[in-house]
Simulated assay, not measured.
Amino acid sequence: MAILVVGSVAFDSIETPHGKVDHCLGGAATHFALAASYFTPVRVIAVVGKDFTAEHEAVFTKRGIDTRGLERADGLSFHWKGSYAGSMDSAKTLGTDLNVFEKFEPKIPNEYKDSEYLFLANIDPVLQARVRSEMPNVRRVCGDTMNYWISDHAENLAKVLRELDVLLINDGEARMLTGEHNLVLAAKKVQAMGPKTLVIKHGEYGATAFFGGGSFDNGVKALHPFRAPALPLAEVVDPTGAGDSFAGGFYGYLASQPKLTPEVFRRAMFYGGVMGSFTVERFGTERLQSVTREEIEERFKLFMEISHLDYAGA
């Protein structure tokens, strides 16, 4: 089933203890689309500038990603510059040039109107709400946001939350959104705002899913929270885009399955972790471009092994 993702396609300049790169391909929609493309067809809506070349577009098309929704505007593409140090839990932003992204107005091609899954990546909630209203027949809607929209655009964000089936945010954003330090209490408040399911990402410590009524297709009522691990890695080269890659693996796997059951949801959490773990091994999207489905399945088995008491390698 096809996923339509709306978000940023950008260039990143990144420095970490392992080196630095200048203007590598990045952006939330880019990481999401590449990760999801290993599981299901993906269509992308974003805006790029004159610096986005045929070579950059080939990164998408080689993975079978539909780029008819890429708008080309007069100017430069969105550019973010940041650095990581120490534990690399978060980046220090050194510069943000919105460029053509500043006036981004998503336009949905007619060929995309039959998309069954919609992912609203981290953009202005006004734009998220507009896209959602223009896609009333999608089977499921998942969204992301960040601290800026939570703190300065709460009213508009609240309208988006009411329309989501699944919300993916990190633990800091969950606390900011609700004012609750305890994540169990925070999850209850977030779900009361609209999302049936909440996935809270914990960076290098995995992610936790909180389920409510309507989370599944088979009538199963709300379950206890489910925690998926992250893979302990000896070396993290670049964490940029790991959360978006998690979202792509997670949502891509969901869209690949005929029904959303508790078992499918748990496996999707693992696949999200798998794709995030590949992303951090190289700068930008380099690893996502070269990974194979066989490598993905091997790492999925590794996730099973480190998290299941009775795992027998089957």
Rank of each mutant, 00 (worst) to 15 (best):
E71H: 06
E235I: 10
E116C: 04
K201T: 13
V138E: 03
L177H: 00
T261R: 08
D97T: 07
L260K: 06
V131T: 02
T16A: 10
A222E: 13
S87P: 07
E295Y: 00
V100N: 02
G272R: 09
S245L: 05
E15P: 04
S215D: 03
T197R: 00
T145W: 06
K201P: 04
G86A: 08
S215F: 01
S13P: 01
T16R: 05
P106E: 13
L127M: 12
C142N: 09
C24I: 15
V5P: 03
N182S: 12
E298K: 15
L118P: 03
T16K: 03
G194E: 04
G194Y: 02
G203V: 04
F300L: 13
S90A: 12
F52D: 04
V6P: 10
T208Y: 03
E173Q: 04
G272C: 11
F216P: 01
T292H: 01
K221V: 07
P239M: 12
N182A: 13
R287H: 02
G276T: 03
L198D: 07
K81Y: 07
I14D: 06
V141F: 00
G272P: 07
L288P: 00
A46C: 05
G248H: 04
G248L: 07
Y205P: 07
Y253M: 10
N122C: 10
D310P: 01
Y311Q: 08
T261Q: 11
